[in-house]
């Protein structure tokens, strides 16, 4: 299975990655190899097998609805490249 350049560019866009032409070419090849490898699973007979959403056998892990302390605002904002009046500040997004 081989991915087209267009598909690679779309995947890169969804992951917010900028690829040079050279990289896109290289990725197209590598991603195709990965997909080919994964495609081996198609050979497995999964008739009557329940879909699995987790590898562990644990289930029903809950916590009670009891508040615990939040971070100090200064700590929460510490790693932000930009902040303003207690907010994280990001480049303007317009809906």
């Amino acid at each position: 299975m081989s991915l087209t350049r267009k598909e690679v560019e779309w995947i890169a866009h969804l992951a917010r990655l900028e690829l040079t032409e050279e990289m896109a070419e290289k990725m197209a090849g590598q991603l195709s190899q990965v997909l080919d490898y994964i495609a081996k699973l198609d050979a497995a007979d999964t008739a009557g097998v329940e879909p699995m959403s987790h590898s562990g056998s644990l289930c029903n892990v809950f916590r009670e609805d009891v508040p615990s302390p939040s971070l100090e605002r200064e700590a929460a904002l510490r790693n932000a490249p930009e902040q303003s009046a207690g907010y994280f500040r990001v480049p303007r997004v317009i809906e």
């Binding site: 929460a76 930009e82 303003s84 009046a85 907010y87 994280f88 500040r89 990001v90 480049p91 303007r92 997004v93």
Partner: peptide, 9 residues
């Protein structure tokens, strides 16, 4: 004066 977007989480 502020051309950005502010985020409250």
């Amino acid at each position: 004066s502020d051309s950005g977007t502010l985020v409250d989480l």
